[in-house]
């Protein structure tokens, strides 16, 4: 196996691990409620937020 093949294999494994991590995080019990929250919030988006300023949601704090 030459260095190029080892590199490709490494990238493939890395991508697989990243994907596995995404799946594990998405389906973790801790994330369950948070992960499903956007589907409820999008049902009522007819008006912009009342916040006068732009920037990310202050509720994060």
């Amino acid at each position: 196996m030459d260095s190029a093949s080892i590199y490709y294999l490494g990238v493939t494994l890395l991508l697989f691990l990243v994907f596995a991590a995404i799946v594990a995080r998405t389906y973790s019990r801790k994330q369950k409620a948070k992960g499903e929250q956007p589907k409820y919030r999008m049902m009522d988006d007819d008006y912009p937020s009342d916040e006068k300023k732009g920037g990310r949601d202050v509720r994060r704090k």
Partner: peptide
């Protein structure tokens, strides 16, 4: 679909995993 039916999508998390795959 949720807007038309008035019902949220079945699983947002399944949507996220399907997206990344």
């Amino acid at each position: 679909l949720p807007k038309a039916t008035g019902v949220p999508i079945y699983s947002h998390r399944m949507g996220v995993v399907a997206f990344w795959s």
